[in-house]
Computed example of a mutant assay.
Amino acid sequence: MGGSPPRELISLADDEGNRVSINVLGRSPGWSAGLDAEIVVKTPFVSGRVDLALYVARLESWAAALDRLEAGEDVAWMDMSRGPSLFIQLTGERGCPEVVVEDESGSMVSVRIPLVPPNGWIADHRERLRHVMDYWVPMLSG
C-alpha cells in the first residue's frame, strides 16, 4: 500500500490547550494481529502517555462508539478490557464534553480532560478510522 501509514486514530483538542490523541505506532512485533499505539494526554496542567494495543475488533468497536456519540450518547471505549479505557462524556461534570482516560490495570491513574471538540469532529474521526482500517487491517488479517 502506498503512502505513509496513518498515525492519529483519535485527535480531540480545544482552544484551551487540552488534547487527547491515540497514535498508531505500527505493527506489534510480538503479535501479528495487533498494532502498537499510545494514548497521549496534553493539557496546560498535566501530560502523559500510556501504551495501547489495537486490533481489528477494537477498531470496529470504535466505529460503534462513534455511532453512539452521533446519536447523542456517552461512550466507554475499551472499558472492561486489559489496558487503558477511554470514556467520552458529551456533557461532563463541568458542563462541557469531557474525555476520561483510565489506566486501571497499569498505573491505576485516571485523568479527566474537559474539552469542546470542533464542529464535524465525529465525521473527522470516521475518516481517521477509515484510513487506519484501510491501511492496517489487510496487513493484520494476512
Rank of each mutant, 00 (worst) to 15 (best):
S28C: 10
S28A: 12
P29L: 06
P29A: 12
G30V: 09
A33D: 12
D36A: 08
A37H: 03
I39Y: 03
V40M: 04
V41Q: 00
V41T: 08
T43C: 06
T43Q: 02
P44M: 04
P44A: 09
P44N: 07
V46S: 11
V46R: 15
G48I: 04
G48Y: 02
V50N: 05
V56L: 07
V56W: 01
R58L: 11
L59H: 05
L59P: 02
S61H: 13
S61I: 04
A64G: 13
E73F: 09
E73D: 14
V75N: 01
A76V: 12
W77V: 02
M78D: 06
M78Q: 05
M78S: 03
D79T: 13
D79N: 06
G83M: 09
P84G: 13
S85V: 08
S85Q: 12
F87V: 12
F87I: 10
I88K: 00
I88E: 05
L90F: 09
T91D: 11
T91G: 09
G92T: 07
E93T: 14
E93D: 13
R94L: 08
C96D: 01
E98Y: 01
V99P: 00
V100D: 01
V100T: 14
D103E: 11
G106T: 04
G106K: 05
S107C: 11
M108K: 15
M108V: 11
M108I: 06
V109F: 11
V109I: 14
V111T: 15
P114F: 08
L115F: 06
L115D: 00
V116F: 02
P117T: 08
P117R: 02
I122N: 06
A123D: 15
A123R: 04
A123E: 15
D124F: 11
D124K: 12
H125W: 06
H125V: 05
H125I: 04
E127N: 12
E127M: 09
R128C: 05
R128T: 05
R128E: 01
